[in-house]
Design a protein around this nucleic acid. Structure first.
Lengths: 133, 133
DNA sequence: ATAATATATGAACATATATTCACATATTAA
DNA sequence: TTAATATGTGAATATATGTTCATATATTAT
């Protein structure tokens, strides 16, 4: 298939740029995994869970109470975060304590927060030592 | 409202942790904006548009051809990216050229790509000089 | 054993989202 | 002007997603 075969007639104007871009494009797998990662981060409840866990490990019902959502809702979100390998957990009696898997996602969130908070007071205290399980 | 008032009875065990976490939680506005940012990044078509624009500015129909989507679909996604201030555009005759607004999002994507590509070959050549409009 | 508590799960519902299609707008050329 | 091209937009559809509810499982206490 050639580019712009039946869409744009002016392709020869931008063909060099398009070819340069084509070479730099990530694989389908990278796009798929990356969009899934951002999709997981693109939910307020999950983001708050991750901010919380970046400070201290917490059990499901503490998270539910902290975020003012039902334990069931928290569990559903934690399941998604587990499937994405973003959080890990340990069992202790009746409780299940969740924590961040590593610092990658924490960095992403902090960098994103800096972006959206530009020119605005940031209530998130980035000085707290990140917690990993 | 007190924490865990009718959900968990064992809250006193973890109350210190919960209180510590509460103080570090971002504001509602930060959570809302950040989740929206990640939501915008959580789509394969938009991610590919951003990867492409990080290499070179492109017009709508070049993007459509490159990504094998309709110009209409590309325009819809670009509208979302414009609304999020992630891309900007300049008009030149019948064409509208889009480019990245700044390096923040490019950094986010690169960092995310490194995360998902761990232990896998990365086809995206990060050495290409990023393009900003 | 039964009861109580913490967490997990499946179904159902409501909402959100991406794409397609048809059409509107804008710019240029003839 | 009209015709052609590039882009934008609104409606409609199909799919995806988050939450709630009911229920199941697991662990501890009695």
């Amino acid at each position: 298939m050639t580019l712009n075969d039946d869409v744009c007639q002016m392709v020869y104007v931008h063909q060099d740029a398009v070819e340069q871009v084509r070479k730099g494009m990530p694989s389908k797998e990278t796009i798929r995994d990356l969009s899934e990662l951002f999709k997981v981060l693109g939910d307020g409840s999950r983001l708050r869970i991750l901010f919380a866990l970046s400070v201290h490990e917490l059990c499901v019902c503490d998270l539910a109470a902290l975020l003012d959502i039902s334990p069931s809702a928290a569990s559903h979100q934690l399941r998604i975060l587990r499937a994405s390998k973003i959080v890990e957990y340990r069992k202790e009696g009746k409780n299940v304590f969740y924590s961040l898997n590593d610092g990658h996602v924490s960095n992403l969130i902090r960098e994103g927060a800096e972006h959206v908070c530009e020119g605005r007071e940031v209530s998130y205290d980035g000085n707290i030592e990140p917690y990993y399980g």
